[in-house]
């Protein structure tokens, strides 16, 4: 029984919660469970490839496993991005389970095996929130009109637009200064990441109950590498991947919930949107899913069917 070394890459620094709960835990668990037979060599923090290139890195077998942000590869796995649409779920543990099932059944052949990669596990962040650099809440839907919001990714841009805000693309390196100096009025982002980018220092308030899309990550293994593994190793990898997805998503959800008191301590006020505003948000956000479906169908992809399939997975949770 030889040692099997697998190279694994992601975009997160080792200090980032997504790295701690994801790649680092995976490495630790699989090395323990396999009693040293499987060895993971970690390449964190875009060392091997930029975030946008991680899909190609695992497809081209530069590394054996990679944690891929769906937002960067909407060209390669377009239907997968259904999971990032707004308003679909609030509990990310259930969202992650549904996403995991979605990419391993309906999309397995269509978007993954056809690209010579296989999903080990899928994970979705809790829904994104509205973050403001000034003011301690959003009392009225009108207040969001023409607000300049930093968004990441295409879905985020469409979400901001449909809400009546102005989506602004700011590179991560400039985000802090852009918020500090008022280049943007706020951001659509997830609370745990505020600490990673230190923008808790320059924010005034954060919503607690919006559902402004989420970011999905699929951990993929190269299919040739996978086929070359002994059966018991495959079983072990999948078992650990399943456990990891459950533990990662529940811990990330906890971390998300805990970030509100932490943000409050840092002087950022958490606020709940009123039922009326939430309703108006929901109404405006419907255009995003409609637009998504129509763009998919324009490419001869079964957008509506796949969105329904993802929703069915959500309903089962």
């Amino acid at each position: 029984n030889e040692t099997i070394t697998l190279k694994m890459a992601d975009q997160f620094p080792l200090t980032h919660v997504a790295s701690k709960l994801g790649m680092q835990t995976f490495k630790k668990t699989i090395e323990e469970k396999s009693e040293g037979r499987i060895n993971i060599r970690m390449f964190p923090a875009e060392q091997i490839s930029k975030a946008a290139g991680l899909f190609d890195a695992v497809r081209n077998r530069v590394v054996d496993i990679a944690v891929v942000g769906v937002v960067y590869v909407t060209d390669k796995v377009p239907l997968t991005s259904a999971a990032e649409l707004p308003g679909l779920f609030t509990d990310s543990v259930k969202g992650s389970a549904a996403f995991d099932a979605y990419i391993k059944t309906e999309l397995l052949e269509r978007e993954y095996l056809s690209n010579n990669v296989r999903p080990l596990w899928g994970f979705i962040t809790p829904p994104y929130q509205l973050m403001l650099r000034k003011g301690d809440s959003l009392g009225d839907i009108k207040d969001i009109d023409n607000l300049k919001l930093r968004t990441a990714g295409a879905t985020g841009e469409m979400i901001a637009k449909s809400l009546g805000a102005v989506p602004v693309k700011v590179p991560a390196a400039d985000l802090y200064l852009a918020l500090q100096r008022g280049t943007v009025d706020g951001a659509i982002y997830n609370p745990p990441s505020t600490f990673a980018y230190k923008i808790d220092e320059v924010l005034a308030s954060v919503s607690t109950n919006a559902s402004l899309g989420a970011v999905a990550f699929a951990t993929l293994i190269n299919e040739d590498v996978w086929q070359g593994l002994p059966d018991d190793v495959k079983t072990q990898l999948m078992t650990v991947a399943d456990e990891l997805r459950t533990s990662m998503s529940s811990q990330f959800q906890t971390f998300n919930d805990q970030s509100y008191p932490k943000l409050e301590k840092a002087g950022v006020k958490p606020f709940a949107l009123s039922g009326a505003v939430l309703g108006q948000f929901e109404e405006r956000l419907q255009t995003v899913a409609r637009e998504w479906v129509s763009q998919m169908e324009a490419r001869n992809l079964p957008g509506q069917d796949m969105l329904d399939a993802f929703k069915a997975h959500l309903a089962k949770q």
């Binding site: 060209d75 879905t155 841009e157 469409m158």
Partner: peptide
């Protein structure tokens, strides 16, 4: 090879503007 593959698949991003990669 990479470019040709992208031309064959017509890789295009999703979003407000759909970019032909």
């Amino acid at each position: 090879g990479e470019a040709i593959e992208k031309f064959i698949k017509l890789d295009t991003t999703f979003g407000a503007i759909q970019f032909p990669l």
